[in-house]
Structure formats: C-alpha cells, structure tokens
C-alpha cells in the first residue's frame, strides 16, 4: 500500500517538475481566440483582465456580439458564457469612418491589446483593443 502510494507520489512530483515552465506557444504575439474552445477563450480573456501587462501590444483576434454604451460613445465586443456571470467585454477603439454594425450582431475583431487599460463596464472588468479591423 505504502509503496504504491509513494510510487504514485513520486511520479506526480516528477510530472510537476517536467511540466512546470513558462514556455508559451510559438507565436507569442498573436492570440487567435476564434480558433479556441469556449473554456480556453474564457481563460485567456480572464488572464488578459488579470494580467494586462503580459498581453500588452499583442495582436488579439476574437469573435463576439456588438454592444454599445448608453450614450453610444463606446463600442464593445462581448463574449458571453452559458450563465452570463462570466461575461467578458473588450472595449474597441473604433476607427474613424468605419461603418457601425447593429447591436447584437456577431462580429470578428482583430487589434492590439492595450496593456495600460483597466476599465470596468457595467460591473465587468474589461480590456481594450486598438488599431482594430472588424468584419461581420
């Protein structure tokens, strides 16, 4: 009994040492959320909100529905989860002259992540994308 559990523990410790590391995917500066699963998207967006410095100036591509602030000044790309409690927002620096989509339309947006921005919109911590290109 003790031998088996000791062996299991040793294997787990070995796995910890082998697995722990900071190496990230090869293309570190491009984060394509559209090719990820829902869980991974939630995690990446959560990490972006928690550690904005780590994602500063990285190019982020994401898909979400369009939302606007009440005064229409700000436009957001919203990513919802099933219970809507972990909704994530991305504030978009909308390019001048760019046509505006209707609210609730699903759009794909690509832009640079602003690492210095930490905002709160309707109780949701959100990030900001600049130099964006959009399609819907």
């Amino acid at each position: 009994m003790k031998k088996i559990i000791c062996l299991m523990l040793a294997l787990l410790c070995l796995a910890c040492f082998v697995s722990c590391g900071e190496d990230e995917p090869k293309d570190e500066n491009y984060i394509d959320l559209t090719s990820m699963s829902a869980t991974m998207i939630q995690t990446q967006l959560s990490n972006m909100s928690a550690f904005p410095d780590l994602f500063a100036d990285k190019t982020v591509k994401m898909q979400g529905f369009v939302a606007m602030s009440e005064d229409g000044a700000d436009i957001y790309c919203v990513y919802n989860d099933a219970t809507a409690c972990c909704t994530r927002l991305m504030v978009l620096e909308w390019p001048e002259g760019q046509e505006m989509p209707n609210a609730d339309v699903t759009m794909t947006v690509e832009g640079k992540y602003d690492g210095s921005y930490t905002g709160v919109v309707q109780d949701y911590i959100c990030g900001r994308l600049t130099d964006i290109t959009v399609s819907w």
Binding site: A15, C16, C20, G21, E22, D23, P25, M40, T43
Partner: peptide
C-alpha cells in the same frame, strides 16, 4: 496545442493532485 500553454499544464497538475 492547448498543452503548450503553461496554465493548462498547471490545471492538469493541480487537478490530479
């Protein structure tokens, strides 16, 4: 592909332990 992310490996280690 997802296992290239350190947070996925962390989750696996922690979950198993």
């Amino acid at each position: 592909g997802y296992f290239e992310y350190s947070f996925v490996r962390y989750a696996m280690i922690t979950g198993v332990l």
